[in-house]
């Protein structure tokens, strides 16, 4: 339990640093990939809804500390964690590697879309229409999260999804 908590905390710090300094350089149409959403997706399937909400909340807090809008980012992270928690895999389940992978992708994608939608409702620095911000940019954010989750899954998490 302690080791898992420590690992998630370390990954959260790493994801936040990536989110603030690296991801904005990869943005398309003013949307950048959400590294924290991928981590929240992973915690949702491995540790459950409560952990994913807490991870999203703390991720939002750390990002907010570095970039402002702390409250809104915390709310967006919590909302993302809640939605990602829908794909939780119970400990006693016999989910196969494919099921776990699929759920990880869906959790990351939905988390990114939800947190992006909450951010879009709460702040509009580029003066874009609400529908565009939520639907178009939210979809781009979700696709980004899916691609990032695929990359993470096949590059760094080969053993994490054992049957």
């Amino acid at each position: 339990m302690k080791a898992t908590t420590f690992r998630i905390a370390a990954l959260l710090v790493l994801a936040t640093i990536m989110q603030v300094f690296l991801m904005p350089r990869l943005s398309i149409l003013h949307v950048s990939p959400d590294a924290i959403a991928v981590l929240v997706g992973f915690t949702a399937i491995s540790s459950g809804r409560n952990t994913s909400m807490l991870t999203g909340f703390l991720g939002g807090m750390l990002t907010g500390l570095l970039s402002g809008q702390i409250g809104l980012l915390m709310l967006a992270g919590t909302g993302g964690g809640l939605m990602a928690g829908l794909f939780q895999i119970p400990e006693e389940s016999h989910a196969t590697r494919n099921v776990k992978t699929r759920r990880f992708f869906l959790a990351s994608t939905l988390c990114s879309f939800t947190s992006h939608a909450i951010m879009a409702i709460g702040s509009n620095p580029l003066a874009l229409s609400p529908a565009y911000r939520i639907l178009v940019m939210g979809t781009i954010a979700a696709i980004f999260a899916l691609l990032l989750a695929i990359a993470v899954r096949f590059l760094f998490m080969k053993k994490s999804f054992a049957d």
Partner: peptide
């Protein structure tokens, strides 16, 4: 947990202009 986390977030949003939050934010910046 959702209610508690949302409430904390909303309090932070409400206090965005407060001196403490501004100081934290400035240090982060």
């Amino acid at each position: 947990l959702l209610a508690v986390l949302s409430a904390i977030s909303l309090i932070f949003m409400k206090m965005e202009e407060a001196d403490v939050i501004r100081r934290i934010s400035t240090t982060g910046t």
